[in-house]
Design a protein around this nucleic acid. Structure first.
Lengths: 221, 221
DNA sequence: AAATAAAACGAACGGTCGTGCTTTTTCGCA
DNA sequence: TGCGAAAAAGCACGACCGTTCGTTTTATTT
């Protein structure tokens, strides 16, 4: 369903299957916790057979990051572009994100978060890729925020980068409370924080129009 | 200076020294990235000699969590109790935290964060201890928030747990941007987010009194 | 169906891991 | 100064790690 695109010729097909299983493990145990041995065992294949598809553990990790980012963008940002620019689209992005967190990231873990923590003070291509994909989604969200300003939904003095910084903080806190502390109220807290943040940056005219807890559709793909 | 308390009889003395070096490694590479071998090499001691002080790797990790939590509380919360209850104390806590982040956590890493990510879906005593120390500082900060409400500095309808949730999100975003993305503006962003949050929850009378970016002392120990 | 290419396998390498022993060194005290 | 206890060292173990290589099994093409 969310598997990677159309496959061809056996090779790419099993490569995709490996990537799929690897994402499952890496989400749980992190990119460093993922070992080729356990990945092979889980797939009922030999270690060397699995290994050959990527050439090195590092390239496997990079492929994992790319695939995870692809799914994230597809689930969070892509469906939102069908909505009107401005606050509707920004809100939809947040809701899509929240839905993804509840359905896949809380049960399985998030590679963006574990990867960031694991590689934030380690040099090399894995770290660099991590930075790249992070910048990519941040840019996307900043663009949506900027459009909300242009539409007059958010105040002109609202800094898009600051807004995205704060919203990502909400997501990180959500992961922390939901996964480590197993606090069921975390999702509600995250929504409240989002509302409060948007409310703060909302243009006066728009703020009055916000019926405080309006309906917010999550746009499905 | 911030070494652990008074030591006695060689044994506890070297144990403290090991803990000190281990904290350095664990901050960088996480609790799982810390190995007894590299710890021994770094100290110029034998693996088994280091090992004997803790009995198991798990107990070493737990001792590390405790020591890290002790230092955190000592640096962030303890100095703040000398200030007046309410917003002054809450603000001091945040500033002390921010100072610690800049001086030790950004350069070295944070065990609370890496530990949370590493153990959030793994059962066992290490995870449990992680939860315990997390709850401890959250309770402390919630208390400060509650007092700020009682003092009339924050609105009566402000939920202390929600406030702490949001403030921790700010800290997590700070770590992310400062460590992974190496964004020097992260600290400024965190302060802005704190101001905005407190401003939002501030009681009307207090809000007017806030001269927007007032002096905020960081209370030294 | 035969020939060629791609994929999976199995065994082995050098390393590092945590941990259990036994022995040696060092310390604290009478 | 010497003796008992505590601390450190040395060594070995089984397990798992990523990786390499030669072989065998599958796919694909002629």
């Amino acid at each position: 369903m969310t598997k990677s695109a159309v496959t061809s010729s056996k090779g790419l097909q099993t490569r995709a299957a490996i990537l799929d299983a690897a994402l499952d493990i890496a989400s749980r145990d992190g990119l460093e916790g993922l070992s080729i041995g356990m990945l092979a065992e889980r797939m009922g294949k030999s270690k060397s057979g699995v290994f050959a598809h990527f050439g090195s553990r590092e390239e496997l990790q990079i492929a994992l990051i790319d695939e995870y980012a692809r799914r994230f963008m597809e689930a969070v940002f892509l469906p939102a572009i069908r909505l009107a620019r401005g606050l509707p689209r920004l809100t939809a992005m947040f809701e899509n994100w929240l839905h993804r967190v509840q359905t896949v990231e809380i049960p399985n873990g998030c590679v963006f978060i574990s990867g960031a923590v694991e590689f934030d003070d380690r040099e090399g291509p894995v770290r660099e890729r991590m930075v790249t994909v992070n910048r990519a989604w941040q840019r996307e969200m900043q663009k949506a925020a900027r459009q909300a300003i242009e539409c007059g939904h958010l105040r002109a003095d609202c800094d898009p980068e600051q807004l995205v910084f704060e919203l990502y903080g909400v997501m990180l806190a959500l992961h922390h409370d939901a996964r480590l502390l197993r606090d069921a109220r975390a999702v509600r807290r995250a929504r409240l924080a989002f509302d409060r943040t948007v409310d703060y940056y909302a243009a006066p005219a728009q703020a009055a129009r916000n019926a405080r807890r309006s309906a917010r559709p999550r746009v499905a793909a």
